[in-house]
Design a binder for these strands. Sequence first.
DNA 1: TCTGTATTTTACCAATTAGCTAATTAACCT
DNA 2: AGGTTAATTAGCTAATTGGTAAAATACAGA
Lengths: 114, 114
Amino acid sequence: MQTDPLSTAFSALADPTRRAMLARLSMGEATVNELAEPFAMTLPAVSKHLKVLERAGLVSRGRNAQFRPCRLEAGPLKDVAAWMEQYRRFWDDSFDRLDDYLKQIQHKERSDDA
Amino acid sequence: MQTDPLSTAFSALADPTRRAMLARLSMGEATVNELAEPFAMTLPAVSKHLKVLERAGLVSRGRNAQFRPCRLEAGPLKDVAAWMEQYRRFWDDSFDRLDDYLKQIQHKERSDDA
DNA sequence: TCTGTATTTTACCAATTAGCTAATTAACCT
DNA sequence: AGGTTAATTAGCTAATTGGTAAAATACAGA
């Protein structure tokens, strides 16, 4: 497997089960059993998916009695988004217009400061 | 492998070689040999990577004599970006402020219309 | 038609991944 | 201590991935 963080993140996201787990975690912490509940899959399989997400830094886990609550960590998502940004002009039709607009805003704010 | 387009796209992006190829293609069309040039890798290996990108819809290819020029197709990137968008609030500190700001703008424009 | 260039296909190998079941560890509660 | 629940580890199999070398295909030009 790749060792660079960006590849690890992309690879962790390349699975619908793992993306669904992240979606669940975006609504708050959850235990492994709670995360596993919607899936027709054994608990060890879920545990493995979690480890993939954890290794990618997308999930961290605490300790609460016999539970190991998982929570979303968005750092890697930020890196992915930053990578995506360089391609925005290829898919965002309004990018050029928005870009112009933001430049205008910045310009305006700068003259407001003065 | 997964069959859903989003997983296929993420999975195609989870390799530094393939991301480098996309970066090269973002500067314009290129042949397989041109794409292969920076890599310490045989041509068939590059060809396989290209097929992965093609299957993900990230690259399309034309035909020009014995050359098969590749070009970037950004559709799947748009889908990835759309998926990312639902997590933006977790990593973009300025998201809330920007969100408020955009709401203000919209409100202002609406009253301008009236 | 022959030759060289561009690219793909085939056959093969090693490493990884995703799933399972069974066994194990950890922590709680009587 | 004993029983229950939460979660992980171990060991297996099957499928996939990423690479190679060698052969095959497609085209251009002499």
